[in-house]
């Protein structure tokens, strides 16, 4: 059987809010090392990769590798019934066709049990090669969310450029154009408010803003976001989940004809 008990149940709630509108049905691959998920969005332009390591759970048991086929909208509906401070336990039998979610209130005076049917999903996994990216930018996730939202009101594609100065976001549309530059900034009190740029090669790529917007639904998961870029490769937008793993989004670029 599989059982995972997460003291910070709000993390799982936030993960579902971040991916439920991008991916419809997917397998949660459970193994003794944790829970992994990899899925493309319906238009095959973006890829989501989630890892929740077993060490991040208060209690974790997985006797046999299980692929739990789940409709994310339905799972999100059930997780919405959990309080932000609840402990969430996921459970599934090896040969079962359901998954149960148990929510325990902080002082254990309210215990909720939800059971959801599983689906058979034959997902082919893509091989994501390890890449030495030409540019890696870490910045406040709220800042990235704000920039993407603001640019989306002006245009539908963003050119993201990285130089040793910093990272720039540009767009244009019917009403005009916009360019936002975030400089490297390490003289701030909290590390999480820093913008750091690791650059090996200046790089500039074009992406559809509606996907970047969708990725920023993960902002609640981490105060920082890391953007990794290389010429003619998908951008990686990564939200680290403290002590647990990460939620990564890969977005294919738009290339000039």
């Amino acid at each position: 059987m599989f059982e995972g008990r997460l003291l910070q149940g709000s993390l799982l709630k936030k993960v579902l809010e971040a991916i439920k509108d991008l991916v419809t049905d997917t397998n949660f691959d459970c193994s003794e090392t944790g829970i992994a998920l990899q899925a493309m969005d319906s238009s095959h332009v973006a890829l989501v990769s989630l890892l929740l390591k077993d060490t991040g759970f208060d209690h974790f048991r997985c006797d046999r590798n299980l692929a739990l086929g789940i409709n994310l909208q339905n799972m999100s509906k059930m997780l919405k019934c959990a309080g932000n401070d609840d402990i969430i336990t996921l459970k599934a039998e090896d040969e079962g066709d359901t998954i149960t979610f148990m929510f325990e209130s902080p002082n254990q005076d309210k215990i909720s049990d939800f059971e959801m049917k599983l689906m058979d999903i034959d997902s082919e996994h893509l091989g994501i090669p390890d890449t030495d990216y030409q540019a890696i930018v870490t910045m406040p996730s709220a800042e990235f969310q704000r920039i993407v939202r603001d640019l989306s009101s002006i245009g539908d594609t963003a050119v993201i450029g990285v130089t040793k100065e910093g990272i720039s976001f540009s767009t244009g549309g019917d009403i005009g154009k916009a360019n936002i530059v975030c400089r490297q900034n390490t003289n701030v009190d909290k590390e999480e408010d820093q913008t750091t740029v690791e650059i090996h090669e200046p790089v500039s790529l074009t992406f559809a803003l509606r996907y970047l917007n969708s990725f920023t639904k993960a902002t609640a998961l981490s105060p920082q976001v890391t953007l990794s870029l290389s010429k003619e490769l998908p951008i990686v937008v990564e939200y680290k989940i403290e002590k647990m793993g990460f939620l990564r989004f890969y977005l294919a670029p738009k290339i000039e004809e």
């Binding site: 493309m40 332009v45 996994h125 893509l126 091989g127 090669p129 594609t157 074009t206 294919a252 004809e257």
Partner: peptide, 14 residues
Amino acid sequence: KGRQTSIASFFGAK
């Protein structure tokens, strides 16, 4: 504004 590529064209199916 360029042609959208697909993510699968970058990451081969395993």
